[in-house]
């Protein structure tokens, strides 16, 4: 059973067919060719597939593809163009990525936090990325990078 879905992907309108039971993650990766959200677990446990749907942080792996009909879907690719997001710069400067697999989801989660809470406390940062696992960094550089951007955006 295939169903048409129409939505905006990083600002661009797209229309495609989805199989019944297909996840948004698989639709984005296999059909739209946006490989920036990653498959880490398929259970919502790791956050590597974090995307924004209508501005809300969501897990693409647990989202039934046809439910995004009419929605705005954003991946980390939306943040990189035309210029890098300050978070991306800060992640590079703070060594906040090693293998890089969790990084796209981590940055989407961090951006969502700063958009709604520009002056987060350290605990709020930890809470905001609590659904995003990282096995390499031990989180400290990631938290530092996010706090650095918050300080910079607020003072700017």
């Amino acid at each position: 059973m295939t169903t048409p879905v129409h939505f905006t992907h990083n600002g661009r309108p797209v229309s495609l067919f989805t199989e019944a039971g297909e996840s948004l993650l698989s639709l984005l990766r296999l059909k739209l060719g946006d490989q920036t959200p990653k498959y880490g677990c398929g259970q919502g446990g790791c956050g590597a597939c974090s995307v924004r749907i209508d501005g809300q942080l969501r897990l693409a792996c647990l989202t039934l593809a046809e439910t995004v009909d009419g929605a705005e879907v954003e991946t980390v690719a939306a943040l990189s163009a035309p210029n890098l997001d300050p978070l991306q710069e800060a992640f590079m400067d703070h060594f906040a990525a090693q293998c890089g697999y969790c990084t796209p989801g981590m940055i989407v989660a961090a951006r969502t936090l700063l958009d709604t809470n520009p002056r987060p406390s350290r605990d709020e940062v930890i809470e905001a990325i609590s659904g995003n696992l990282c096995r390499c960094t031990g989180y400290e550089p990631i938290i530092d990078a996010i706090l650095a951007v918050a300080a910079q955006e607020v003072s700017a």
């Binding site: 959200p37 990653k38 980390v76 690719a77 890098l84 890089g100």
Partner: peptide
């Protein structure tokens, strides 16, 4: 303090992990 050479790909989600290769008729 020096940036990792592969980190731009990591923060933009474009580093080529094995599952990021695209194929027809996969």
């Amino acid at each position: 303090p020096i940036r990792r050479q592969d980190i731009l790909g990591h923060v933009t989600g474009t580093s080529p992990f094995f599952d990021d290769n695209k194929f027809d008729n996969l």
